[in-house]
Design a protein around this nucleic acid. Sequence first.
RNA 1: GCCCCGCUAGCUCAACUGGUAGAGCAACUGACUCUUAAUCAGUAGGUUCGGGGUUCGAGUCCCUGGCGGGGCACCA
Length: 512
Amino acid sequence: MGHDVEELSQVLRVRQEKLKALREKGVEPFEYSFDPTKRSTEAISVFEASESTGSLSDKGYGNVERIGGRVVSWRDMGKSLFAHLEDGQGRVQVYFRKDVLGDEEYEALDLLDLGDWIGTEGNMFRTRSGEVTIRAQSWKLLTKSLRPLPFGKVETDAQTGQRVVHSGFADQEMRYRQRYADLAVNPEVREVFRLRSRVITSLRGFLDSQGFLEVETPVLQPLYGGAAAKPFVTEHNALSQTMYLRVADELYLKRLIVGGLDRVYEISKDFRNEGLSRYHNPEFTMLEWYQAFTDYDSQMQLVEEMVQHVLDEVVGGRSVMLGETEINFNGSFDKLGLIDSLSEALGADVHTMDQKALRSKAEELQIPDLEGAGTGKLIDKLFGELVEPSLVQPTFVVDHPKELSPLAKEHRSDPRLTERFELYIGGAEVFNGFSELNDPIDQRSRFETQMSLRAAGDEEAHEIDEDYIRALEYGMPPTGGVGMGVDRFVMVLANQQSIRDVILFPILRSEE
RNA sequence: GCCCCGCUAGCUCAACUGGUAGAGCAACUGACUCUUAAUCAGUAGGUUCGGGGUUCGAGUCCCUGGCGGGGCACCA
């Protein structure tokens, strides 16, 4: 922003001039407070109630209210004027009349713009065209807006009653960079984030009701782990020590199970230093929980209950639309063996295929970047190519290869596999859980396998966490645990195509 | 990191093979005391993302840089 008014574009200059004019009239353009009697929608409801009980005045006036809000529409008709105010609840029309306000207070309305915050007081009434409106007896500027918000023109379709926006704020980049403007002009964006908040409240309520304890574990960690991911690295000055932003909460939460906090959960921001996509933001919200004495079967049961609980509470039904597809959460979710489903897709038994056979299949399918991929990775790639895209309805994929799951317990009936599940919804992995590996000796050897992968160039492989092994040596009871991608779950419930549309301030490159 | 597409007025978008950069909304001036994409008349508003090049002439073509979107890679 330039200090020199001359340099400003026309639209900004005009507002600076109005600001100056207001100050010259002795009007404070940035008020300290306001005391509304109600918010918009509530004021309308009260009016409608008295309307139905026939308790309006002879002239049709109802309750007197003071309402504060942002001016979002403006129709000047000379000696009277209609505007809409929007507040945290909704919007309400205001009717200004010259003969009611008097010349001076009416003419001062000229100094207002779309985007200004004002307060007004008057009776509620219903206009000839049927809209419940506040008839302004007085008004007051609360905050002058010095920069025009990119409002579109809003039409209500006469047939459907649908809100239609003409030439609204659509530039994706600006909507993310200036989320405040996006929220200010696009009420449906505000709704997405209200929904997100309700989802998190509901998840928390569910776990609390099941006797889980919400805890907080370190974001800054001397050693990261719990996921195959590259970390963000930082430095603690006083300790002169390298610290990592967590990639998962897993290892700390399981230390708490060792400590006897037998049902714990954490809602956390995790950080993974990797690329961006419609399913990946480097900073994202994870819910992880661990429950002693359970295995992955009972955790799948719990996930199902939890998902249905949230649907019932937040959506009010067991299905949602995701794009053109209806996602149905009723009943038990399907279960697919990872190896079995891949075998079927390949038309060959994956268990009998060696690394070479898997590789040639992958090459046949022209799957890129196979260099250095071991058996587990090849299976993962093939599965991602052949099976994953079809997992639109909620589906548990179960029993992953050991190599891919260094923290999961060996499968009780197949030593090549682990007791692990992932729940896919809309083609994306949303939940991931397993029977937790609690044998410290097995855990050490898994870490050692990871170290050799690391030595072979896999930057995401785990390092050995000696302190974690020490904890397991004290004894961790049989435990089931689950991690949940909260953002991805919200995407499904809010019918959003990109993770950026459910994160208020997604990561973007700096403007300069 | 790679591929494709995009970036023009405050916002949403035009501008055929290179030939004076336009419209709607917003803004400004004026009219209008129940409007609601209000309406009507008029006015103003531009570093066409930055830099370089080709050309008599570049929003348009070439090179280069920036940012974004989509895809790929990466992603227990």
